[in-house]
Design a binder for these strands. Structure first.
Length: 393
DNA sequence: GATCCACGGGAATACACGGATG
DNA sequence: CATCCGTGTATTCCCGTGGATC
């Protein structure tokens, strides 16, 4: 166990219960250093990135698979590991061969959920490649492109960019990514990571290499849950049989499985139980919508949007009966510094983005006019609430 | 002075429903 | 009976403004 998780344990175990020792360790949005049960995918990825070890960049590629199959986990693990070990060897090379022309490619991981615009995409890449800080304001997209070009071309530098979560709602498409990077041709390659099968992609920018990440098989999912539970929960807090049932329920989706484990543990913890009870499991499963908007998407939303969501899930049923009423209530909260009109617009936008679903209530009010609708969250609210509160404590 | 982007706010459009019209 | 119309809401769309930087 590393120091930071030891510290977190001490911080978080101050209150009445000990079921959860470290929320971070069971968080669906946290990735571990060593992904469990993805050996063959890692092998394929290593084959693919092999040119990097010879200071060249591989062709563009597309990594794809269903939600919760560990795409992000595998890519982030690979990139952080490779960058770590190579910055070591780089420094060795620099001391021995001063001014050598052949430089090893940089590896940059970009989450398209954060880099939702052309500007941010370029900014993220530049930030990953340069030592100095890259401005977030006051400079145009063209300027950033120029700076990236100045980094790459004249110095024989190269970079391999992984763009995670392409073609999601609210993120750039594979085609847009390909388009953005096209001009950097020989010195920038990219790995796009998405869900759609390659055959469903548009013809035009289809990358030459495809690597599939299949859904987890059930026993592997049990292993993952076991690892996480032993890192974040008290000993004996959960039975193997319970983990097996979560795995069976989640249908190969590690995100959903971890959400159930997290929510059940949180439920047990808040009720002061010493272990996960059956009803904790059931409550947790019932509270995960299916399909479920990944938590990572929620946590990538702007601060105010998350704030609005945090309040939305706390609003009483009767105040949630219409978008208008919910907006008024939320805007009235002291911690919210937005007008009711803006909250309303944000709520509609969130619904449009699939984060919540508008359910038109059957007209039972006497008034005329179009019937209002109720907002039903489509994300794991319990997990979001806990993670949000921990982050804003 | 420039840039990006979140906010605010209001105009435009969609929908529900009852009653009038052809 | 089918359609149209008026009224009242709900929802979508759009654009100017201002903050935070460079």
């Amino acid at each position: 166990m590393d120091l930071s998780s030891r510290i977190r344990r001490r911080q978080q175990s101050g209150d009445e219960t000990q079921v959860v020792l470290d929320y971070h360790a069971i968080s669906p949005v946290a990735h571990v250093d060593e992904p469990t049960g993805r050996g063959s995918v890692l092998e394929r990825l290593l084959d693919y990135v092999d040119p990097v070890f010879g200071s060249r960049i591989p062709p563009n590629s597309y990594v794809w698979g269903p939600p919760g199959s560990g795409k992000s986990a595998v890519i982030t693990a690979l990139f952080t590991r490779m960058s770590r070990s190579r910055s070591l060897s780089d420094s060795l090379i620099h001391t021995s061969t001063r001014g050598g022309t052949s430089t090893t490619p940089k590896l940059v991981y970009v989450d398209a959920r954060d880099a939702s615009t052309e500007f941010r995409l370029h900014r993220s890449v530049l930030d990953g490649v340069l030592e100095e800080s890259v401005p977030e304001h006051g400079v145009g997209t063209d300027t950033l492109r120029t700076r990236l070009d100045e980094y790459l071309a004249p110095h024989n530098h190269s970079v391999l960019v992984a763009v995670d979560h392409v073609d999601e709602r609210g993120t750039q498409s594979l085609a847009a990514i390909a388009d953005s990077f096209e001009a950097f041709g020989g010195s920038l390659s990219w790995i796009a990571v998405g869900r759609q099968s390659p055959s469903a992609l548009a013809e035009a920018p289809r990358p030459p290499e495809h690597i599939e990440v299949p859904a987890y098989r059930e026993p592997v999912l049990v292993d993952i849950l076991t690892t996480r539970a032993s890192a974040g929960l008290a000993r004996q807090a959960v039975e193997h049989e319970q983990l097996r049932r979560i795995a069976a329920w989640s249908d190969g989706n590690a995100h959903d499985a971890l959400c159930v484990l997290f929510a059940a543990a949180d439920e047990a913890a808040t009720e002061g139980a010493s272990r996960l009870r059956e009803r904790d499991l059931h409550t947790a499963m019932d509270a995960i919508p299916r399909p479920c908007v990944p938590l990572g998407r929620i946590l990538a939303l702007s601060d105010n949007r998350q704030l609005v969501l945090r309040h939305l899930i706390a609003v009483d049923d009767d105040e949630r009966a219409s978008v208008d009423a919910a907006a008024t209530t939320i805007a009235g909260a002291s911690s919210v510094d937005l007008s009711a009109g803006t909250v309303k617009r944000l709520l509609y936008e969130l619904a449009e983005a699939g984060v919540a679903e508008r359910v038109t209530t059957d007209r039972l009010l006497e008034g005329s006019g179009r019937s209002p609708s109720r907002l039903e969250p489509r994300f794991p609210t319990r997990v979001f609430r806990r993670l949000y509160d921990l982050a804003h404590a």
